[in-house]
């Protein structure tokens, strides 16, 4: 039993709800009316396009097209990470895309082959949404990790230099920052994993239940995807910080401040 279609009047009732944030913004002079309308509009257009596009992709279910679409997601994700971390793109984008590709596609193949045992591992119905979930959920952790690392280096530059003059190699001197950034980046994902099901019902599980799956099947998928997200996040953050360690410092071991946007 698939989820019932939302009718046009139903969608209208949905948009009417936006009057509440608009009134709140008006009353408190938040100056968010424009952004609210713009964001809602962008979301609608983007999702409509994706809806049509995915219908097309699912009907076609072509391996090359599916892989290409996941690659587009990887490139956009890498770009988003660097943009939000306020780093210049040119020096880091290529290694970041490569590392995201390896971790995410690797995880997708493992997931589809060994965990859910698909006959066609590139099946669009699994490959694309699961890829999107894994990638999307590791984004924030990457941004936190990279920001935290750059921030620590700049704030504690003296301590870093002291370690170098105490005989540390670059990687030895940076290790305390690496540890701290990794912990800070992974904490939200861990907290999320620990509260799932009680504090909130995750989107994928809700979607499956609405789509007619039994809650038991839905939780199996949810558990599997949470583990996949956590593991991919760990790998992505570690690789992103490693890339920063090697690309972000000159041959003297000094942090390349020119990499920062400001």
């Amino acid at each position: 039993m698939p989820a019932s279609d939302i009718s046009l009047p139903g969608m209208l009732f949905c948009f009417i709800l936006l009057l509440i944030p608009i009134l709140v913004s008006y009353y408190f002079k938040l100056q968010l009316i424009g952004s609210t309308l713009q964001s809602a509009f962008r979301m609608t257009i983007q999702l409509a396009l994706v809806g049509f596009f995915l219908t097309f992709v699912f009907d076609l279910n072509n391996v090359i097209l599916n892989i290409t679409w996941v690659m587009v997601m990887v490139i956009v994700a890498s770009h988003t990470v660097l943009k939000n971390a306020e780093l210049k793109l040119q020096s880091l984008i290529a290694p970041l895309i490569i590392s995201f590709t390896i971790t995410n596609v690797g995880m997708l193949l493992y997931f589809n082959t060994l965990i859910i045992d698909l006959e066609d591992v590139f099946d669009a119905r699994y490959f694309i949404p699961i890829g999107g979930m894994v990638l999307g959920n590791s984004l924030r952790a990457n941004i936190v990790g990279i920001n935290d690392f750059c921030d620590q280096i700049q704030r504690n530059e003296n301590r870093y230099l002291s370690r170098l003059s105490l005989g540390a190699e670059k990687h030895e001197a940076l290790m305390p920052y690496v540890k701290k950034s990794l912990r800070n980046a992974l904490k939200p994902t861990l907290a999320n994993m620990a509260t799932i099901g009680i504090v909130f019902l995750p989107g994928m599980m809700t979607g499956q239940i609405l789509g007619g799956s039994s809650p038991l099947v839905a939780i199996e998928y949810q558990i599997a995807i949470m583990v996949a997200i956590y593991v991919t996040t760990v790998m992505n953050v570690v690789l992103a910080i490693l890339i920063l360690m090697y690309r972000g410092f000159d041959e003297y071991g000094m942090f390349r401040k020119s990499m920062l946007k400001i």
Partner: peptide
């Protein structure tokens, strides 16, 4: 600014460097 935490741990860190 050589670090924070117990002094003995600082010695531990410095002498863990390969050099």
């Amino acid at each position: 600014d050589i670090g924070e935490g117990p002094v003995m741990a600082l010695f531990g860190e410095v002498f863990s460097y390969s050099a």
